[in-house]
């Protein structure tokens, strides 16, 4: 790339020189990945060990994909609400949103996962139980609120909540930046037409802001897929957990973890291409650049 400015006109270049120039433009990195993929796929088809590892890992794909999709969707909702809070002029709303964002961004996601799964969810269950006791005169002593027990909230659910809350904190800042990037005149024009603050947000500011933050949101989606591997720490059987269990039982660490890495790489590459495709589609539809 950096050579392009010094490049001579094609007519004055040797054939070899032109070839080197062209070759410098090719996506060699993709070739390496594809070759690695072919190698591993070849192994999966021919080697009994790899095919056993692959079928084992496949068991966890459902959990990985489900965790990613649900946690990401929840994170979008949380992030949008917190992002709106971050630009709010209401001091209570602003401070609550800022507190949330600062706490979330200052604690590692793995630690958040542990805290939410082992501290916050049990506390919430206690709270619900107490509420049930409180409402016993109304609902009866054996009401469903007082009957909630920790096993009723499986670790998969706790992990999804934790990932959603963690990513919501990051997306809040993405949404805030998007909203603040829209010129003040847009809000003023909307308000001058009699729209309320929320109507102006909904019809004028957010449609423009969201279009602007699609690239970072798309990156977050890919990042969420990768971070979903953290749920294995709590024993949730996603592909990472399946790999850990298989490796521990078979002592085939190298083959198992290489396959695991390949699984993630294959998924993230497909996902990145998908995200790019969605972005280009949306860009060709929205002409506005305001």
């Amino acid at each position: 790339m950096s050579l392009s400015t010094e490049r001579l006109p094609a007519s004055e270049q040797s054939l070899a020189g032109r070839f080197v120039d062209r070759a410098a433009q090719w996506p060699w990195w993709l070739l390496v990945i594809v070759l690695g993929g072919v190698l591993i796929a070849w192994n999966a088809l021919t080697s009994e060990l790899y095919s056993a590892i692959f079928s084992r890992l496949t068991l966890g794909i459902g959990v990985t994909v489900f965790t990613t999709l649900v946690a990401y969707s929840l994170a979008l909702v949380i992030g949008l609400l917190a992002g709106l809070g971050r630009v709010s002029t209401n001091p209570v709303v602003f401070n609550l949103a800022t507190l949330y964002v600062q706490v979330i961004r200052g604690v590692p996601i793995l630690v958040q996962l542990l805290v939410i799964a082992f501290v916050i969810v049990p506390l919430l269950i206690d709270g619900v139980n107490s509420l049930g006791m409180l409402l016993a005169p109304l609902l009866g002593a054996q009401n469903f609120l007082s009957q909630v027990r920790p096993p009723d909230v499986p670790f998969l659910t706790r992990c999804i909540i934790a990932l959603a809350i963690a990513y919501g904190g990051f997306q809040a800042e993405t949404f805030r930046a998007g909203i603040q990037s829209i010129s003040r005149g847009q809000m003023e024009a909307a308000r001058s037409l009699g729209m309320s603050y929320l109507q102006a947000m909904r019809y004028i500011i957010l449609p423009q802001a969201i279009r602007r933050v699609l690239p970072p949101l798309g990156n977050d989606f890919v990042a969420m897929l990768k971070d979903s591997s953290l749920v294995s720490v709590l024993g949730v059987r996603d592909i990472t957990q399946e790999a850990r269990l298989y490796a521990a039982a078979s002592f085939r660490y190298m083959e198992t973890y290489l396959s695991l890495a390949f699984f993630y790489l294959a998924m993230t590459i497909v996902l990145s291409l998908g995200v790019k495709w969605v972005e280009s589609r949306l860009n060709s539809h929205g002409r506005g650049q305001g």
């Binding site: 010129s183 005149g185 847009q186 003023e188 024009a189 909307a190 308000r191 001058s192 037409l193 009699g194 729209m195 309320s196 004028i204 449609p207 423009q208 279009r211 929205g286 002409r287 506005g288 650049q289 305001g290």
Partner: peptide, 20 residues
């Protein structure tokens, strides 16, 4: 909001909504 609906305003920078 009610008063603003009765008072039209035209800005120096137009402020049209670019996505519409």
């Amino acid at each position: 909001n009610a008063v603003r609906a009765e008072v039209g305003m035209v800005f120096q920078q137009f402020n049209l909504f670019p996505h519409l």
